Simulated scan of single mutants.
Amino acid sequence: MPNLKLTLTALLLMSSLFCYAQSDEKSIETQVTRMISDWNTHEFKNMDLYTTEDVEWVNIVGMWWKGRKDVKMAHQSTFDVFFNGVPFSQKSLNIRFLTGDVAIANLVCHVGSLFPPDGIDRGNNRTPETDNLLMLVYKKKSGIWLLSAGQNTIIDPEAAKHNPITIKTN
């Protein structure tokens, strides 16, 4: 009988941890959805709901923004100019928990064609649609998963053909 109690206790503990992890994963998925929604509406008024006050962001050309105020302003500025009207869609999301309150989310998203760097159509400066890989670091604060750091990289399809380790992007 003692072994049965121990086994049942272990099973109960494992199932509750599994449910807890699923709940945390869903919470992070919700935060990623909020972020993508802001990208598509081109308004970052919701950023306070999904980022830490000290969030940092490294964009696709290596600009490093620090603090929610600057990250929000920089996103708004770039989306007002060259991401204006550009659609974003999630292709995949993989979440890995480093600790009970820190997780890394690798997001592959599809980005529509755009006119960099200033958003102006010059007849020959439209970039093709592309996929981007984002590494997002989430921290659980007061029970809420918040983005603490993000980094965005354009996936080069030609280079990807030669990658010895295939990364699933769809």
Rank of each mutant, 00 (worst) to 15 (best):
M1V: 07
P2L: 14
P2D: 01
N3T: 15
L4K: 07
K5S: 11
L6T: 04
L6G: 12
T7H: 05
L8A: 11
T9E: 09
L11Q: 14
L12S: 09
S15M: 08
L17P: 00
F18R: 03
C19F: 11
C19G: 15
Q22E: 02
Q22P: 05
S23M: 05
D24V: 01
E25C: 15
S27G: 03
E29T: 07
E29H: 10
R34S: 10
R34L: 04
I36T: 10
I36S: 01
S37A: 15
D38V: 04
N40C: 02
N40W: 11
H42T: 14
N46I: 13
N46P: 01
M47K: 00
D48T: 08
D48K: 13
L49P: 15
Y50C: 05
E53K: 08
V55K: 05
V55E: 03
V58A: 14
V58P: 10
I60F: 03
V61I: 14
G62H: 05
G62P: 11
M63S: 01
R68C: 08
M73T: 06
M73K: 09
A74Q: 09
Q76V: 01
S77T: 12
F79E: 00
D80R: 05
P87R: 06
S89R: 05
S89Q: 07
Q90I: 03
K91T: 05
L93I: 05
R96N: 14
F97A: 06
G100T: 10
D101S: 12
I104S: 13
N106P: 00
L107E: 00
L107H: 02
L107W: 00
H110F: 03
G112C: 01
G112E: 02
G112A: 12
S113C: 12
L114C: 08
P117L: 10
P117N: 15
D121W: 13
R122V: 00
R122T: 00
N125E: 11
N125V: 01
P128H: 06
P128M: 01
T130N: 04
D131Q: 11
Y138S: 03
K139H: 05
K140V: 07
K141N: 14
G143T: 15
G143R: 13
I144N: 14
W145R: 04
L147C: 11
S148E: 08
G150A: 09
G150T: 02
Q151M: 14
N152F: 10
N152H: 14
T153V: 11
I154P: 11
I154R: 04
I155H: 00
I155Y: 03
D156P: 14
P157D: 10
P157L: 13
E158V: 13
E158G: 05
E158Q: 02
A159K: 09
A160Y: 02
K161G: 12
K161Y: 15
K161L: 04
K161Q: 04
H162T: 08
I165S: 10
N170A: 12
